[in-house]
Amino acid sequence: EPLWIRPDAPSRCTWQLGRPASESPHHHTAPAKSPKILPDILKKIGDTPMVRINKIGKKFGLKCELLAKCEFFNAGGSVKDRISLRMIEDAERDGTLKPGDTIIEPTSGNTGIGLALAAAVRGYRCIIVMPEKMSSEKVDVLRALGAEIVRTPTNARFDSPESHVGVAWRLKNEIPNSHILDQYRNASNPLAHYDTTADEILQQCDGKLDMLVASVGTGGTITGIARKLKEKCPGCRIIGVDPEGSILAEPEELNQTEQTTYEVEGIGYDFIPTVLDRTVVDKWFKSNDEEAFTFARMLIAQEGLLCGGSAGSTVAVAVKAAQELQEGQRCVVILPDSVRNYMTKFLSDRWMLQKGFLKEEDLTEKKPWWWHLRVQELGLSAPLTVLPTITCGHTIEILREKGFDQAPVVDEAGVILGMVTLGNMLSSLLAGKVQPSDQVGKVIYKQFKQIRLTDTLGRLSHILEMDHFALVVHEQIQYHSTGKSSQRQMVFGVVTAIDLLNFVAAQERDQK
């Protein structure tokens, strides 16, 4: 057995438009009618409502009807409940999964919650491996369901041993009777949507819809739904939504950006999952974080739909894509998950301010006199920076000697690579993860907040409520011999709460 199987392995699926269902090699399930009293909570997966979006479509000038398939009504709160249950049931049916076995899954959280929910009911041990950027709410729900959680670096490539995929496979090879159901490759993922989600949409719309818009992560949702719609409703256009920084969209030119990270969760990847059939997507749109969270908040405030950030991405694209539809036509959007997962993220004004998705003037509360002053007023001194090749031991000596707790790590040209902190280095040394002679590049981390000289002290204040420091950066445009230009970030300084307090105190003292 291989040590790991690539999540982007070539698909062996034989589905073709027009091929009889009787030739399918898979076990198919028909939607079942729910009894009045459910035998367990797993029976509350599927049969989610279709809700008309009344205000947002009109606000953006849509002539067509805009409908939302509300997947956050599933038992675990997301569309991923469907595939989690289906993968477990299919693994039980073919004898792969037996009582007492362990389920391991690399996930952005929602599939993990679905699997942990099913594992709690069915009696399996469950280990979820997820990147650090995923919300604390997801972690809390997983723990409450009895799952064990392993976190991995957000910026690790999918084929790196440190990625959530790599760590999951390492655990599988170490733990007896453990299984990775593997949402990236498992046919049960798109089949769950082909058999149930798509049929529900067709039934709820009486077979009449002209466009379907869905955000894409593993691709199982859009693949399964689109294949069924292509068979039953061939005139329906399928629109895929991919965040900026991901590479799922086609044509490839759409993916060209210097951005590699994004805040919206559960969609987009740096590889093409095996289950994603991009041939059934008629057109791709890219979405960005700001519009995703703005539209998610709009869905909550104006439509009462308590959905997550990827739902915002989907609707932001839908109001663009559906401009081509006329009166009497219908566009369906998939709202994948609930706001429950993001209470401390985009639902929080403070978080939105820190990330730059909300401006101070958007909030009406009274601010102190210094709130709208610029960061450049602080008069920061030149920063202490270190090269990635310097040793951890030497870096600790320098920081202690100069009285700093942290320093930016830059390359020879001064471009920011990340940050090192005294606390992080000492804990890594004590844990045996690094040696004093190791290069400081081994303990770089990139989960820090950046701020510009033109940003306000109010925004800085919000950042420092949650973080010990902020890195002050400025952009530099560099022209190359080819005539092309590129933008790079340079370090201007490091600012802490002490710097802000000293500035405010000094100004008030001078005024007296």
Rank of each mutant, 00 (worst) to 15 (best):
K449I: 07
A322T: 05
I300Y: 05
A413K: 14
E290I: 05
T456W: 14
D282S: 15
T261Y: 13
V440W: 05
A321H: 15
D467W: 11
D270Q: 04
C307A: 08
K512A: 13
L353T: 15
L471T: 10
G356A: 05
R297E: 02
F357R: 05
L453H: 03
A311I: 06
A311W: 03
C331T: 01
R400Y: 14
V375D: 07
S338A: 11
L353K: 11
G309Q: 00
M298L: 15
D289S: 00
M352A: 03
D499R: 04
E291I: 07
V332S: 00
L380E: 09
C392T: 15
W351I: 00
R509F: 15
T294P: 06
E291L: 11
V375P: 06
V494Y: 03
G304R: 00
S485H: 04
R350V: 08
K512V: 13
T454C: 14
C307N: 03
R374F: 13
P383Q: 07
T389W: 05
D289E: 06
G245E: 01
D242Q: 02
L363K: 10
Q302R: 12
E412S: 12
D455S: 14
A301R: 11
T274P: 04
M298T: 13
M343S: 00
G414S: 14
F285T: 06
G268L: 00
V319M: 15
L429M: 15
K449F: 10
R488S: 12
F404P: 02
I272A: 03
T395L: 10
K512G: 11
F503V: 15
L501S: 03
R488P: 11
K484C: 11
S427V: 06
V472R: 04
V434W: 04
D467I: 02
A249W: 01
S486F: 13
T261S: 13
H480Y: 12
M352H: 01
V415H: 11
G308V: 01
S310F: 00
A506R: 10
K283W: 09
V264D: 01
S428N: 10
E252N: 13
G304L: 00
A318N: 01
R400G: 10
T260C: 08
I396L: 14
T395S: 14
S437R: 14
D277K: 02
M352C: 02
I300N: 01
Q439W: 14
P368S: 12
M425G: 09
L464M: 11
E377K: 12
T389C: 08
T385P: 03
V494A: 13
L363H: 13
Q256S: 14
F469D: 07
D467M: 08
K355D: 02
D349Q: 08
Q323W: 14
I334R: 07
A413M: 15
A470S: 15
E401G: 13
E263Q: 11
F293E: 01
R452A: 12
F492T: 11
T482A: 14
F357Q: 05
L363R: 11
D510T: 10
I390S: 11
R330I: 09
A296S: 07
L254C: 03
L378Y: 05
D270C: 03
I300T: 03
F448V: 14
T364A: 05
D282N: 15
H474D: 13
N341D: 02
L464N: 06
E291M: 12
V315K: 07
A497E: 05
E365I: 13
E365S: 13
T279R: 14
Q487K: 15
G304P: 00
L353H: 04
F293N: 00
P408T: 03
E244G: 07
E377N: 05
G423W: 14
V319R: 02
R278T: 05
I416S: 14
D499S: 03
F492M: 14
T389Q: 04
V440E: 04
S313H: 03
D467C: 07
T314L: 03
K359M: 13
T260I: 15
E412P: 14
V491G: 14
L358P: 07
K286W: 00
S348W: 05
T257H: 03
G245W: 04
N424D: 15
A301P: 04
K367W: 15
E508K: 13
R400F: 09
R452F: 12
V495E: 05
P436T: 12
V494F: 13
Q376P: 09
E253C: 08
F448W: 13
H372P: 06
V410Q: 13
I451D: 08
G414R: 14
G245T: 03
E244D: 11
W351M: 01
L373T: 06
P383L: 14
N424G: 14
G483A: 15
V494N: 04
D455R: 05
H474N: 04
L353Q: 10
V415W: 14
F357D: 02
T391P: 14
S381W: 12
E397G: 10
D438A: 05
E324P: 13
A413P: 11
F346A: 02
I463L: 13
S461E: 12
K402S: 13
T344W: 03
T391I: 09
E252W: 09
L306S: 01
I238P: 05
S246P: 01
P368R: 12
N341S: 05
T421G: 03
T294K: 04
G493L: 15
K446L: 13
R374D: 05
G403C: 14
V472I: 03
L422T: 07
H480V: 11
E291S: 13
F346H: 04
R459H: 14
V410S: 11
E360N: 12
L426Y: 12
T294H: 11
K402Y: 07
Q507Y: 10
C392S: 09
Y262V: 05
I477Y: 09
I272F: 05
L380A: 13
F285V: 12
R340Y: 05
E377I: 08
E244T: 10
L460I: 08
L335S: 05
V443H: 04
S437D: 04
L373I: 13
G418V: 01
A322L: 04
D438N: 14
Q323L: 15
V386Q: 06
L384Q: 08
E303R: 02
L353I: 12
G483Q: 12
Q447A: 14
K449W: 14
P388K: 10
V472C: 09
M466A: 12
P408M: 00
L299F: 04
G240D: 03
Q354N: 11
K484R: 13
P251N: 03
T395P: 10
A431M: 10
G493M: 04
E475T: 04
T389G: 10
L347W: 02
W370R: 03
V241N: 00
K359Y: 05
Y262H: 06
E360A: 14
Q256N: 15
I498P: 12
G312E: 00
K367R: 15
A311M: 05
E290P: 14
G308K: 00
T279S: 12
Q478C: 15
N424L: 13
S485I: 12
Y262P: 05
L347R: 01
E401M: 10
V386G: 07
S428P: 14
Q511A: 11
I247F: 05
M425I: 15
L373R: 08
M425H: 07
E253M: 03
T389L: 12
R350F: 06
D411H: 08
I498A: 12
F404K: 05
A292D: 02
A505P: 05
A470I: 04
Q376D: 09
R350W: 10
L501P: 03
C392Y: 15
M298N: 10
H372I: 12
L417Q: 13
K366T: 13
E253N: 13
V386P: 07
M352G: 00
F346C: 05
L399K: 06
D337E: 03
N502C: 10
Q302K: 14
D455L: 09
E475K: 13
H468L: 15
N255D: 03
I477A: 15
G458F: 11
K283A: 10
V494H: 03
M490T: 03
S310C: 01
S310L: 00
N288W: 12
D282T: 09
E397Q: 14
S381N: 08
N502P: 12
